[in-house]
Every structure is written in C-alpha cells, then in structure tokens.
Design a binder for these strands. Structure first.
Lengths: 209, 209, 209, 209
DNA sequence: TATGAATGAGATTTCATTCAT
DNA sequence: CATGAATGAAATCTCATTCAT
C-alpha cells in the first residue's frame, strides 16, 4: 500500500512533526501512535489515512532526509567509479567536498538523522547504519582493489577496511552527538577524516602471504 | 529487595538461560517474560520468585559478566594511578595485557556482552556503553594532563581524546560482532589498538592558543 | 489527559452503569475492570478509550453528583459569609433550606453518594468525607468566633465543634443507609438537625480559662 | 481448622507484630503476606503454619483486643439485665464506669482497635462496627421498652435510638483518632457521653399515635 | 478527509495459597 | 518448625490496528 501524497496537507505535516518529536523522545518501539495523533489534534485513525502503519509514519518522518543522504552518497561513488588511480590519489579534495556535503545533509536534517541512527530499533530502518556501512564498504573494497592491482606483493586487508568504514560512520554519529552546529561539526570532523585517510593508506593493504 | 541466591537452583538457571536467548533475540523491551517463563517450563509468577522484576532478571543474566568486566577495568586503572610518566611511555605492554584480559572476559561471556552492548535499550543497563566510556575518558584525560604538563605550548585536546575513547570501545564491539573466537579476536584487535595508541600520541595534545 | 465527552454515547453510559454496580458491590479496590467491561459487553480496552484509568472511571460515575453536592455547599457558605450575628441567630430557617437541598442532591444520586461515602477507599476520592468535614469545620469555627467575640469570658471549643461536625455528616450517612426515600429521609433528618443545632448552641463555646 | 497455639512462640509473635504494622499501614486487602513474613524474617509458608489464612492472621492480631472489648460489653449488659428502673435512673455512675473501662480497653489496644475500625475492609471483621452497634442497639431498645412501659402515651423511638447508638460508637472512634492518650481521651469523651445521655432521655421515647 | 469506537492481544506485576521436604 | 519453590488466577494498563460512517 502506497502512503497518501506528501506536501500540501496540513494535517499530514502536523502528524509528521509530532511523530518526529515522539520518536526522538521515546524511540520507535515505545512511541505511541495515540499520543502522536492527539498531539497533532487528530485521532489514531487519521494516521492510517495518511500512512500505511507505524513504519510508514516513520518513513514519512525520515524519508526525505534519507533520500538526500543517499543521493549524496550515490553521487560520490558515481564519481569515484570514473576516477582512476590518479583521481584516487587526489581524493583528499574530493573527500573534503564529500565530507562537507554529508555534514550539510546531516545538519539540515538533524532530528531525522538522530532518529535513524539512534531511535529506530524495532523499525524497518533499524539496520540503517549497517546498510550505509555495507554500501561504503563495498565501494572502498573496489577502490582498494584497483589500488592493490598496481602494488605487487600487496592485497586488500578487508577486515581492517571494514573496520575503518565503521569508524568513519561512527565519527559522523559522534559528531552529531557532540557538535550542535555545522561550523563546529566541520571543525571536528575534518581532522578526523584526515586521520582516517592516513590510516586507510597505511592499513588498507597488507602483505600477500 | 534482594533477588534470590544464585547457584544451586535448576529452575533459576533455566530461567536465566531462556531469558538470555530471548533478550538476545528481541532486545530487552520486546522480550516477553511470559515466553521466557514458559520456555523454562514455569509460570510468569516464578520469575518474580527469583527476581525482583524484568530488570532484575536482566541483572541475573549479565550480573556476573558485568562484575568481571568492571574488575578488569578497575584493576587496570588502579595500576595506572601509580604509574608516572615513565610508566606511561611503556604502557604498550600494559595495554597489551589489558587488551588480552578484556578479550578474555568478553569472549567468556559473549552472549551477555552482546546483550549489554546491543540489546539493553530500555533497561537499567541501557547506558552501559556510556558509563564505560566515561570511566575511560576521565582516566585518559588525567593521563594526558600529566603528559601535557611537561610539554610546553601544548594542551589536552579533550574532544579528540573523547572521540578516540569512543573508537576504542567501538573497536571491541566491532571485534565481538566479527570475530567469533578469542584467537582471531586478538589477531584483529591488537593492530587496531596499536593504531589507536599511535593516534593517541599524535592527537591527544594540541597547540596552545 | 481529559476523559472523553459524556452524553450521547451508549457504550460509555453502559460502562458507567456497570461500574456503578461493581463499585457499589465490591468497593473501588476490589472492583474488577474486566468484569465491568464484560458486563457492559465490551473489552477492558474500551474502558481506556473512554476513561483515563480506574480513577477516571470512578470520576465518570460520581462526577456529576459530586459537582452538585459541592455547588450546594458552596452556595450555602457563600450566603453565610454575608450573614452577621443577626443572620446567624435565625439560621434555623436557613438550615432547614440547606438540609432540604442536601437531601435532594443526595437522594437524586443515591448510589453515587453511597460509593463516595462508603466504597471509595483506595481511590482518589477516599478522603471525600474528610474534605467535606474540613470545609464545614472551618466555616463553623469562623461562625463560632464571631459569636464568641460578643460573649465575654467565653471562647470557641474547637474540639467539640469538630466532633459536632462529624456527627452532622454521619447523620447524613446514617440517613442514607436507613431511609430509602426523600420523604422519610427528611422526616428523620430534621429533628436530628434540630438536636444538633441545640447542641451547637450549648457546647460550641466553653468558659475561658 | 484451628490455628496453632498462642503465646510461647517467638516466630508467631514476630509475625503478629509485623502483620499489625502492615495492616495498619495498608489495610487488610492491600496488605501483603509476603512482606509480613519477610519483615518477620520468615517466609510466607510460615504464616500458614501458624494461621489458617490471611483472615486467621488478622484474628491473631486483633483476637485478644476483641475478646477484652466483648468482655467489657458483656459485663455491662449482664449487669443491666438485672437492673430495674431504679438502677436505670442512676446509670450515670454506671455509665461513667463503663466509659472508663471502654477507654481502658481501647487505649490498651490502640493499634488493634484502629485496624478493626478502619483497616478491616475486605476481612471477616469488616462488619465489626455494625456488630457492636447491633449489640448495643438491642440492649438499649430493651432498656427503653422497660422505661416506656411505665410512661403512658409514650413508645420507643427506635430510629432515633438506633442513630444515637451510632453516634455513641462514632464518638469513640472519633476519640481514638483525635486523642492520643487515655487522659485526654477521657477528658473528651465524658462530656460527650453526658450529652448523649441527655439526648437519650429526651429522644428515646416519642408520643404514641 | 477524517473521526470515534472498539478490539484483541499483549504487556508486567502481585498475590494468596499449597506442598514436598 | 519452617523453607523454598511454584502455581494460577487475577490485576491494571497499553498498543497498533481496523472500520463504519
């Protein structure tokens, strides 16, 4: 079942707004649809007019943020795919741009991201972080494999790479929880990303047996 | 009210065993006492004979693991307090020993740690990771301050230090999720800890303004 | 949270009716929501649609009766405040009117009053009688103090006054339990009130020390 | 089933002591046997060794007080039965003695009386007050009938008499709740009893139709 | 476009009571 | 003389969901 159309509806907007607050406060499982509806001046039935179910409502809350985040990631890796080793070497600049775009998306949808990262247990998005990590992970492995191809005696250290991806994601989560505005966020995250790129260079390949 | 004594009781053991499985599978909030009791061949009332309530049951499941973990951490920092700068420099060895003890405790109580780390939302242990992080964090800051005292023009970079603590903890979580036995766990975690110690040396202090 | 609106709802009415019977029979604490709901042909959940909780349901049962009773008392004492000693002497007439209004309210809500007086232990109305007594008591003390002001060598005998207030309230309770219709109730209560007014005149003041 | 023997047992005494406290605090229905037993350093099972059930335990708590109270009342009315009209006229003295004995029994078993009067709802003693009232009532009616027999054109006003009995009992209840020691209790109750005897004289008979 | 009503299944918790040992 | 274990029934309450209107 497709949920009812977006925009243009005041009640739907109120529902989303109140759901956002409730999810933030209580988490997906403990959030109460009755409370959300009544906060919005509506009844629970109304929720089911606009959304398929509780998960659908969550989708209404985080959908756009999620879309934008995915778009940024898609675009980043679309470019990467075309980049050759030369491009790869210069990726600091790239990375900087990518980091800034991520920070933008994240801070433009701060509450939604917090819900996705920290309040979605029990919902269909509970694996959100894992999904992101998997996407990054396979891209990074692809990249590293190109790199390894020209480095005789070396091969991709997948476990370390996977962990570094985790650390990278967690760095953004950490950033969100500790820096409340974009500027200080960038001030924190840039050196961290630099550190990670260095680690990436140093540990992503290991000696062939 | 103190929960009933451990050991010697078959039903209590069964209850804990079944609770462990249920908590692992569904998480604290969604776990059903009814199911736990009936899996154990008992009634819900029986749970309340042995434990004070749902949180008490969780305590029954993770209590010992938690105690051992805390003991290891306590001991580590008790030693640190006596260590001076000299000791601090050589701490790699220390750290190796600490790491090994942690890995031992963790893998001796694999399921319990998983519950504490990942399935305890909504319970009295939901802040478990934060508590650990805070303990480590303040110890590390103390250590870094001693270090900074003899480094003119430098001061402790608390934010970076705090993040590195996070990364350290997350490394153990990551390890648990990806390495199923002690040996491969150590094989993974040791280089990671080395990497973190290097980062610690490099980033824990920043230039004074 | 405000309970759902009165009137117009058949199920709500049935719920209140069945709750009234159950409260009357078993008292608040031992009354079973399950039984009330099923007597009304509904499920327990339905109770929570119409009322906030068990106390809210009791409020639904006795609310109106309580409001009317309070209104009668309010009005009586609003008049008293304007009455001076002269008015006080003639208060028999007043008192007769007050007594009649009380009897009216009580017998128009016989079951509800019985619940409030005798079956509300454990509920938010368990202090109902005490509250009424306190209201009357402080009014009576005020009245007696005016009286004492013009009687040299005499002062208010608060303990006796307080007891007489108790006796007055208990007289109404007694009346309810023994007289089943308004007419015989008035026939019983009027001489009793006369007796109490005499006692009031005689015992409300004591010799100054 | 007869409850186990009294006296001489330390555990039984402790159980009674703790039950007394629990009943006082929570009332019969809400009192918890588990808590009583554990306060006494025993288990619930032990309660059932010494007492038949929850009511039996209450009996253990209030039994002796009840016995003494009944003895005082028995004795009072045993004397009355032999008293003729002459004796009846002088009964003030009698009444004073009776009042004093009641006050003695009540204040020697203050907690037990409080439980009987105010905390026994739901137990087999919940009608305690009614039972006492009925005993007094029928005695008083008998007395009044003797009196009426020699007063032509007058007959017993049973309703008024019954109410006065209520007032008398309630006076003792009131006394208990407001006067914490025997002396001030007597100071309060004596004038009240005098007042009631006057009312008794005046209102216990009414004109024959 | 929504409401209002209601369900039904579930949750945790509490309790008096029993009984083998 | 008492424990420790367990039952079974009940309690209040919460919730997502449905559906006629």
């Amino acid at each position: 079942m497709q949920d009812k159309n977006p925009d243009n509806n005041e009640s739907r907007r109120r529902l989303i707004e109140c759901a956002k607050r409730e999810f933030l406060e209580k988490g997906f499982v403990k959030a109460s649809l009755r409370k959300i509806a009544s906060d919005a001046g509506l009844t629970t039935g109304a929720v089911y007019f606009f959304f398929s179910d509780k998960n659908g409502l969550l989708e209404g809350v985080v959908g756009e943020a999620l879309g934008q985040l995915n778009a940024v990631i898609d675009q980043h890796f679309a470019e990467d795919i075309e980049s050759d080793l030369a491009g790869y070497r210069q990726q600091d600049g790239d990375h900087d741009a990518f980091t800034e775009m991520l920070v933008n998306v994240i801070y433009d949808h701060y509450d939604e991201m917090t819900i996705l990262l920290d309040r979605s247990a029990g919902s269909k998005y509970e694996d959100f972080v894992d999904v992101i990590i998997n996407r990054l992970d396979s891209s990074y492995i692809g990249l590293a494999e190109k790199y390894a191809a020209v480095m005789p005696g070396r091969r991709v250290n997948k476990k370390m790479l996977h962990w570094l991806t985790h650390v990278q994601i967690n760095a953004f989560v950490h950033m969100m929880q500790h820096e409340k505005d974009k500027e200080s966020a960038l001030h924190f995250i840039k050196p961290v990303m630099d550190m990670l790129i260095k680690a990436w260079m140093e540990y992503s390949l290991e000696d062939d047996v």
